[in-house]
Simulated assay, not measured.
Amino acid sequence: MTFTDIERAYLNTQNLGRLATVTPGGKPLIAPVGFRLNDDGTIDIGGPNPESQRYRNVGKNPNVTFAVDDMTPDEPGAVKPGWGRGVIIRGVAEVLTVETPPVAPEWFSNKIIRIRPVRIHSWHIDPDNPDGEVRVVG
């Protein structure tokens, strides 16, 4: 399995992440994006404009990083209350056309970016492993 049950549960509570791609000139581009975690461990990213730079970047260089993070709730029982927590995924992406967009189908395009994770780093989301882990999955 690509993601642990705890990583999967965390990602399913989030609806916004940041996708990092590389421009043809070698410059990084980071874009906030809506996403969906699929049952097979891939991640679908959508948007209203399939002609945007991030789609063109993936077409030229499929190596991407995707980050989903927030602040740990400052409440009893939380892992590292008041600290940051999240999941960073390095992977290989491709542009696909799907029948239904992963989020906001009323205004997102059917052209998506699908990420196949290669390396996952999670932190402050697992009470049994509060400092997290980094692992190669692909």
Rank of each mutant, 00 (worst) to 15 (best):
M1D: 11
M1W: 05
M1A: 14
T2V: 11
T2S: 08
E7T: 01
E7D: 09
E7F: 01
A9M: 03
Y10L: 11
L11F: 04
L11S: 05
N12G: 11
Q14I: 15
N15D: 15
R18Y: 06
R18C: 12
L19Q: 03
T21D: 05
V22T: 15
T23F: 01
T23Y: 00
G25F: 04
G25C: 04
G25W: 03
K27M: 15
P28G: 10
L29Y: 00
I30C: 09
P32R: 05
F35R: 04
F35D: 12
F35G: 06
L37G: 06
N38E: 12
N38C: 12
D39E: 15
D40K: 00
T42Y: 07
I43F: 03
I43K: 00
G47A: 12
G47V: 07
G47Q: 02
P48S: 14
P50N: 13
E51L: 10
E51V: 10
E51F: 03
S52N: 09
S52Q: 07
Q53K: 01
R54M: 09
Y55C: 07
Y55W: 04
Y55F: 13
R56D: 12
N57E: 07
G59Y: 01
K60N: 12
P62Q: 06
V64A: 07
T65W: 00
F66R: 00
A67Y: 05
A67T: 09
A67H: 07
V68Q: 08
D70C: 14
M71C: 10
T72W: 02
T72C: 14
T72A: 15
P73S: 11
D74V: 06
D74Y: 02
E75P: 02
E75T: 09
A78S: 12
A78L: 08
V79K: 01
V79L: 09
K80D: 09
G82D: 09
W83Q: 13
V87T: 14
V87H: 08
I88M: 15
I88K: 06
R90K: 06
G91P: 00
V92I: 08
V92C: 10
A93H: 00
E94I: 04
V95N: 05
L96K: 04
L96R: 06
T97Y: 05
T97G: 09
V98A: 14
E99L: 14
E99S: 15
T100C: 13
A104D: 11
P105Q: 12
P105T: 09
P105W: 08
E106P: 02
E106I: 13
W107I: 13
W107L: 10
W107D: 08
F108W: 05
F108G: 08
F108N: 09
F108P: 01
S109Y: 01
N110Y: 07
I112F: 04
I112D: 09
I115F: 01
R116A: 12
P117K: 00
V118R: 02
V118S: 07
R119P: 02
R119W: 01
R119S: 14
H121I: 13
H121C: 10
W123Q: 04
W123N: 03
D126K: 03
P127D: 13
P127I: 10
D128F: 14
N129G: 10
P130C: 11
P130A: 11
P130E: 11
D131W: 05
D131P: 00
G132Y: 06
V134T: 09
V134Q: 03
V137T: 04
